[in-house]
Amino acid sequence: MQEHQAGHDDEPPAEGWPTDWMRAVLGLCVLRALEAAPSYGYAIVAELERAGLGTVKGGTLYPLLTRYESAGWVATEWKAGTSGPGRKYFSLTAAGRAALAGQRSAWDRFTSTTLSHLGDSGPNPGSPAEPPSTSPAARKRAER
């Protein structure tokens, strides 16, 4: 993994980020791309690329967006294109914003925990961060 850290901080490595990592964060990053304003597929791809996440293919992006649409996290609207075919715009619903806030907070704690564990001097001896309360394990603990 060390070789992935080489180069510019926000540049993906030449071979791209590991697929497993991208799979884990893509949903969260797509929600983030829609946070400021409604957007369409290729603009989302371009924004993720600008953010240093590499090129996301349409075949990966749209299935994710259809799942979010079914879950009620995004709403859609077709707008006529000035030249060429129309574009399908995706916007965050209130449920989508709540999901983004929850996932962002959980991801922040997860990366803090991971960075702390990966620190130069080995694992942090302090108490580990609590996993997000939405996890099944946390729910079981709370029920007890």
Binding site: Y40, G41, V45, Y62, P63, T66, R67, G81, G86, R87
Partner: peptide, 30 residues
């Protein structure tokens, strides 16, 4: 229409952008 719009924007072919049509169709939540 999403496929047509995306390949018009990206300049890719449908196969480059979406892979194998049957696999892509199976991934959509429709």
């Amino acid at each position: 229409a999403v496929v047509r719009g995306h390949i018009a924007d990206s300049g890719e072919t449908a196969a480059e952008a979406f892979g194998e049509p049957r696999a892509y169709a199976g991934q959509l939540d429709v």
